[in-house]
Design a protein around this nucleic acid. Structure first.
Length: 482
RNA sequence: GGCCCCAUCGUCUAGUGGUUAGGACAUCGGCCUCUCACGCCGGUAACAGGGGUUCAAAUCCCCUUGGGGUCACCA
């Protein structure tokens, strides 16, 4: 067990989005690689936006992805609780100590006073941003505190001069001047900490050695380092991951359709595929593209993480995803595809002997589990659905080839792929036919579709009885029409 | 606007002073072929611009331009 302790600290304000999933992944990979500890912490201090459903959604998404945590909700750990809302006394204690030591102070300014000052600032500066707390209470002492239960916030005393920097594992050296900062609120008047404070206190209490998160947090880092120091501790290492950008090259938001991990699950993606794509989006290891989970763990390193935002590409995701689907064992794909078959109104018994062979015939053609379910549909549906394009190919002109093909196969045994193919070839040669003369007619009759796996594979999986029945049905239909 | 970060094919990227600038996705040809895929072969396609440093810059420095992030009693 190494001393590496990393964490993923989402706020439960919606579904887990793929940027968050990637952050979790990188942390998880690093913990696995180093034999360290991966901690999950729920930052639910935004009372208005945090929901129980979101907490569950995050658990579900992480479970589905297979990103398991060593310490956190459900599994416990020495540094719990792991919901910030359950840690309020801890923050309060640290904040009070900071005030006692003169590193932070109570600010009794009201929201209204601040809003007024902000408006004045904006009037003066043409509506531009950049308002900073003027420090009204910075130099006051306990003697100045109003009597009674007057609400106040805790603010950190940020030095006016100088700058704070760090050596970021992915971005390199970054330094930000203190004049860009302000005496930030540590805890709200309701006793709930703000992000920067809760985050630092917990990272400290939980012994975090490396904070890896999205680079939208770069600007928070100097403030957090200042808080670490105020708390009398040395800040951990930081790694800021570039954003995942949408097609407009903007930070991908939770509102993006492609943003939710849940969506990929519902679309029938397999976790390893999404993980592989996400890992490679912003991280590289030479020319390696298609990697298993184990290979990811083996190769992952912060030095391979890029500094640039990375554009999300649905097509490449599909490619990577398909690769992972196809390397899964047939019975595993089959089991995973069953719910998708059910979703399209097809109840297939898990032990149906046709199931795995059917899946084997379509695995090279499918990208998602939903595709698998779609592509094996006609093996199980009685009668198979006739799609529109296929219906057109079932014209009177194919009646003759269907009849002769039916006659040929009716007498054939064993009903097995190679044997069938041999017999049909011999027959074609004798009759002076080519496959093209009748293959589509048979395909449509058998499956109701214009595109399927090889005919003989389909026939083998379907079995003789079904094949003959479907050929007969098609012939009867044509005779009735003609 | 201030501050911070970034800049190689359309996209993800390799590259750390000397390469015909490589790979992957996409795209375009071709092969395979019973359809659809898979697979295989091949093509198009990039160092944002300008200055330096150097015998030699995609690689180092500066400027410009462009892009992103962030400026709350949200996280």
């Amino acid at each position: 067990m190494s001393s590496v302790r990393v964490r993923f600290a989402p706020s439960p304000t919606g579904y887990l989005h793929i940027g968050g999933a990637r952050t979790a992944l990188y942390n998880w990979l690093w913990a696995k690689k180093t034999g360290g500890t991966f901690i999950l912490r729920i930052e639910d201090t935004d009372v208005a936006r945090s929901t129980e459903a979101s907490v569950q959604a995050i658990f579900d998404a992480l479970d589905w992805l297979g990103l398991d945590w060593d310490e956190g909700p459900r599994v416990g750990g020495a540094d719990g609780p792991y919901f910030q809302r359950e840690r309020l006394p801890i923050y309060r204690a640290h904040a009070d100590r900071l005030v006692e030591e003169g590193r932070a102070y109570r600010c009794y300014a009201t929201k209204a006073e601040l809003d007024e000052a902000r408006r004045a600032h904006e009037r003066e500066h043409g509506g531009k941003r950049g308002f900073k707390y003027p420090g009204w209470w910075r130099d006051k002492t306990e003697r100045d505190w109003p009597a009674g239960d007057v609400p106040f916030v805790y603010r950190l005393k940020v030095p006016h001069e100088g700058a704070t920097g760090w050596d970021d594992l992915v971005k390199g050296t970054i330094e930000i001047g203190h004049r860009e900062l302000q005496d930030e609120v540590l805890m709200r008047s309701d006793g709930i900490p703000l992000y920067n404070f809760g985050c630092v206190v917990d990272d400290l209490e939980m012994g975090i050695t490396l904070v890896a998160r999205g680079d939208d947090h770069v600007i928070n880092t100097p403030m957090q380092i200042l808080i670490w120091r105020a708390l009398g501790a040395e800040a951990p290492a930081f790694a800021h991951l570039p954003m995942i950008l949408d097609e407009r090259r903007k930070k991908m938001s939770k509102r993006d359709d492609a943003g939710s991990v849940e969506v990929y699950r519902e679309r029938g993606f397999v976790p390893d595929g999404l993980l592989n794509y996400l890992a490679r989006l912003g991280w590289s290891h030479g020319d390696d593209e298609l990697l298993t989970r184990e290979e990811l763990i083996e190769r992952f390193d912060w030095s391979g993480v890029g500094k640039e935002g990375a554009g999300y590409d649905e097509k490449k995701l599909a490619h990577v995803q398909a690769h992972h689907l196809r390397r899964m064992p047939g019975d595993v794909i089959a089991a995973a595809a069953l719910p998708f078959a059910e979703a399209r109104g097809l109840a297939i018994a898990p032990d149906d002997p046709r199931l795995v062979p059917a899946v084997e015939t379509v695995r090279q053609r499918a990208v998602t589990l939903a595709d698998v379910a779609n592509m094996i549909d006609y093996y199980f549906r009685e009668p198979p659905e006739l799609d529109e394009k296929a219906a057109k190919q079932l014209a009177p002109s194919v009646l003759a080839p269907l009849r002769s093909f039916r006659a040929l196969t009716a007498g054939h045994e064993p009903f097995e792929r190679v044997s069938l193919e041999d017999a049909v070839k011999a027959w074609m040669e004798a009759e002076g036919l080519t496959f093209k003369d009748y293959a589509q007619a048979v395909r449509v009759a058998l499956s109701g579709r214009t595109a399927t796996p090889g005919l003989f594979e389909v026939m083998e999986v379907l079995g003789k009885t079904r094949c003959l029945a479907r050929l007969d049905a098609a012939i009867a239909k044509l005779e009735a029409e003609g």
